[in-house]
């Protein structure tokens, strides 16, 4: 197991929270909620070691399109980057509802 944290600049306020996914094989759980400050914070617990750069790549891409001040916590059980990106999109979509 490995834990990473990343911060991204934000320029919009978040209001709602959302939870998607499950910590099952090839999947992950995403908890998205408003951040207390003007920055987006991401914390990742992953079962697969050694993929810090790939996580950074996936999140860098996500935060080029998403600018809200959120706190995201991810519990990952070996999801592919594609699945991570999809769950992040779903969390954003759910937080809008």
């Amino acid at each position: 197991m490995e834990t990473f944290t990343f911060d991204y600049p934000a320029d919009q306020k978040a209001t709602a929270r959302a939870h998607v996914g499950v910590v099952g094989s090839g999947d992950l759980e995403v908890l998205l909620e408003p951040s207390p400050d003007q920055t987006a914070h991401v914390r990742i617990n992953t079962s697969v070691d050694g993929y810090g750069q790939v996580w950074k790549n996936v999140l860098d891409r996500f935060f080029t399109r998403f600018r809200k001040a959120v706190r995201i916590e991810i519990n990952d059980f070996g999801a592919t980057p594609g699945m991570v990106a999809l769950r992040l999109e779903q969390a954003v979509e759910e937080s809008r509802q």
Binding site: G26, V48, G50, Y51, V54, G78, T80, P81, G82
Partner: peptide
């Protein structure tokens, strides 16, 4: 092709 296979 999914850009990454399972297993990274």
């Amino acid at each position: 092709a999914e850009t990454y296979q399972k297993g990274g």
